[in-house]
């Protein structure tokens, strides 16, 4: 783990833990409920990558923007999105954050700077760059952080967006979560060179242990300070691992095929690699929190998850008429 930071008090540390745990427990619940057919559509889970999103979002403000990916629940919650509204969205209810019109792959809360999860791999590059361009024109010190994976880094818009951000010194932070897989394909088999070398042509870069929340936080803080003060874009790569499949219950259509070993997955779940177990050990080891503190966080998270499930299940079905009225403002589709 990174060094304990003197500027943190216990509450700050426990807030990081709570947010990571909220992502983990809420997605474990989604994984189980998905198999029971409790909600429509697919979910792509973030389990195993929690330190990356939570560490990164812990050092930006409400007014700053993020763009997310198809694996977007973690980013939504890390940036302060409400779990129960996200669940209601996944359940297709009108209480959903997008009134049931977007679903899991499109959770967004523009009031909190969450410009949306995105079903197009790499879809966030240009959107984040455009937002950063807007901030640059306004001179208001806001930053735009683009979460993407190693799979998305093979899209051409990655280079294009880095080029614009560099040419105009925009406050864009390219946050690459390198989990080693591009959907169902091992990224190394389809990727030439190192991703970081692509970014080095345009901006300062750093690779950090993406399962160490404090290391991610420190690296992103530096990038945010650079962006806010006119220093232009940065590339931060977090090395991490996707524990779940590309999407839940993928075995059903893989026809028995596999693309990685059970041993590999298991290795990333061990106490020395799992981002939450590592952080809990750090907190107790440093005397920042004790077992009772951790248990209290766990309990509070479990309660919030159960309340959110109840909220989503009790919600009203989405209004089909919205499909016609929401395409345009003040204009029927």
């Amino acid at each position: 783990m990174a060094e304990a930071n003197v500027s943190h008090n216990q509450a700050d540390y426990l807030a990081l833990l709570r947010r990571m745990l909220l992502i983990r427990r809420s997605e474990e619940r989604l994984s189980a409920l998905c198999r029971e057919g409790k909600f429509p559509g697919a979910v792509h889970l973030y389990i195993g990558q929690e330190a990356s999103g939570v560490g990164a979002c812990s050092v930006i403000e409400d007014r700053d923007w993020i763009t997310s990916t198809h694996r977007g629940h973690g980013h939504f919650l890390a940036k302060g999105g409400e779990l129960k509204r996200m669940y209601a969205e996944i359940w297709g209810k009108r209480e959903g954050i997008c009134k049931g019109m977007g679903g899991s792959m499109h959770v967004a809360d523009f009031s909190k700077g969450i410009l949306g999860a995105n079903g197009i791999v790499g879809g966030g590059f240009a959107i984040a760059t455009g937002a950063a361009f807007g901030a640059k024109l306004r001179g208001d010190g806001r930053v735009a952080m683009c979460f993407f994976g190693d799979g998305a880094a093979n899209q051409g818009t990655f280079m294009e967006s880095m080029n614009v951000s560099s040419a105009w010194q925009l406050p864009t932070i390219f946050l690459c979560e390198n989990n080693g897989v591009s959907e169902f394909t091992i990224s190394s088999t389809v990727t030439g060179g190192k991703l970081v070398d692509r970014a080095k042509a345009f901006m300062p870069t750093v690779i950090v242990d993406g399962n160490d929340v404090l290391a991610v936080q420190a690296a992103v803080r530096e990038a945010v300070e650079r962006a806010r003060t006119g220093g232009g874009p940065s590339y931060v790569e977090t090395t991490t691992y996707r524990i779940q499949g590309h999407l839940e219950a993928e075995d059903a259509f893989l026809g028995g095929g596999t693309y990685r070993s059970a041993e590999e997955i298991s290795a990333w779940q061990q106490a020395n690699r799992d981002p939450i177990l590592r952080f809990q050990a750090f907190l107790t080891g440093e005397g920042i929190a004790d077992a009772a503190d951790l248990a209290a966080v766990e309990q509070s998270v479990l309660e919030e998850v159960e309340e959110a499930v109840a909220f989503a299940e009790a919600g009203e079905d989405a209004d089909p008429e919205l499909a016609f009225s929401l395409m345009f403002e003040n204009q029927e589709a």
Partner: peptide, 15 residues
Amino acid sequence: CEATMTGMALGATAA
């Protein structure tokens, strides 16, 4: 870079 320009247009509306 048309593929990025169109996305940037959307992003800049956020500001």
